[in-house]
Design a protein around this nucleic acid. Structure first.
Ligand SMILES: [Zn+2]
Ligand SMILES: [Zn+2]
Ligand SMILES: [Zn+2]
Ligand SMILES: [Zn+2]
Lengths: 137, 137
DNA sequence: CAATCAATGTTATTATATAACGGATTGGTA
DNA sequence: TACCAATCCGTTATATAATAACATTGATTG
C-alpha cells in the first residue's frame, strides 16, 4: 500500500516527491533539480534515481509526450499498469483519469495480436474545459 | 490521400521516409541522420524538418516512449488521431494496431472530463508473441 | 521582374538522460 | 561486535534528443 511505502522514502525520494506534489502539475527532471538546489540536490542523477524509485512505487507517473513527471493523483491506484492522462495543449493542464474499462479494452486488443500486455501509456491531447470556453467567447 | 502526397515529397522528406520504410522498425532521428550521411544529410535539423512534414502528412508516427519514429503501416489510415502501438520490451518489435473501438472509448472517456480530444497516443508495453514462446521453453 | 513563401544548409546551443566510479549507509547475521 | 550484502548516495563526464538563429536557395505568381 502506498501510505506505508511513503513513510519509507529516503531523503532524496522525499524531496523529489514533495516537489511534484507541491507543483500540482508535471515537472521535468531538470525543473525538479532547479527547485531542489537549495536543499542540497546538485546533479541530475540524484533526481533521476529518486524518480526511478518513485515510478517503481507507483507514486509518480511519467508523461512520455512531455518528458516530464507527475505525482499520482489516485491514492488508492496501485495498479501501475494503465494510466490515462489528458494534456491541454493550450494551458498545459494535465489530469489523470481513472478508468477500468479502457484497461480491459486495451487488454483484449493486445490479445488479438497475441501480445502479452504489461503496461499501457495513454496520453490524450486536446483542450481542457476552461480553455474551450475561453476560446469560444 | 496518401499516395498523392507521397509523390509530392521533397528530396529530404523522401530520403527520411525511405529510411523509415526500409528499416521496418522504429528509428531515432539521429539513427536516421547517421544512415543518410552518405546521401548528403549532415545536420539534425534536416532530419527533424523532414519528420515534421511527414508527421503532418500522416506518413510517419512518433513513438513518444521511445523518442523514435516509424512509417505508418496503414496505407489507408488518414485519421492521424488515434494510433495504438505495441512495443516488445525484449526484442524491440513495434506493431501499429488498427482499432476503431478504442478511439470511441477514449472519446467518451474524455467527454466525461469535458475534455475536447484532438489526438491520442496509446503505447502498449509487454512481450510479442515470439518472445513469449521463446521465454516459456 | 519583384514579391512571396516554402524548403534548405550551417553553426551553435539547449534539453534530456545515462555511464562509470567510489564512498556512505543500512540491515541482517555469524 | 565484526562481517557481509544490498542499497543509497555524490560527483564528473558523457551520450542522446531537440531547437534557435540566420543566411540562402528555389519555385510560384501577379
Ligand atoms: Zn496514478
Ligand atoms: Zn487548458
Ligand atoms: Zn498509421
Ligand atoms: Zn519480442
Amino acid at each position: 500500500m502506498k501510505s506505508s511505502e511513503h513513510g519509507a522514502l529516503t531523503r532524496n525520494q522525499e524531496l523529489v516527491y514533495d516537489a511534484l506534489t507541491d507543483a500540482k502539475g508535471p515537472l521535468s527532471a531538470y525543473a525538479i533539480l532547479d527547485g531542489l538546489r537549495e536543499h542540497g540536490i546538485r546533479a541530475p542523477l540524484q533526481v533521476y534515481r529518486a524518480l526511478d524509485k518513485l515510478l517503481e512505487f507507483g507514486l509518480v507517473h511519467r508523461l512520455e509526450s512531455l518528458n516530464s513527471f507527475v505525482a499520482c493523483s489516485h491514492p488508492e491506484c496501485d495498479s501501475r499498469e494503465t494510466m490515462v492522462f489528458t494534456i491541454c495543449e493550450k494551458c498545459g493542464k494535465v489530469s489523470e483519469l481513472a478508468d477500468k474499462a479502457i484497461a480491459g479494452q486495451l487488454e483484449s486488443l493486445a490479445d488479438l495480436d497475441h501480445f502479452a500486455l504489461k503496461a499501457a501509456t495513454v496520453e490524450l491531447r486536446g483542450f481542457c474545459q476552461a480553455c474551450q470556453t475561453a476560446s469560444t467567447q
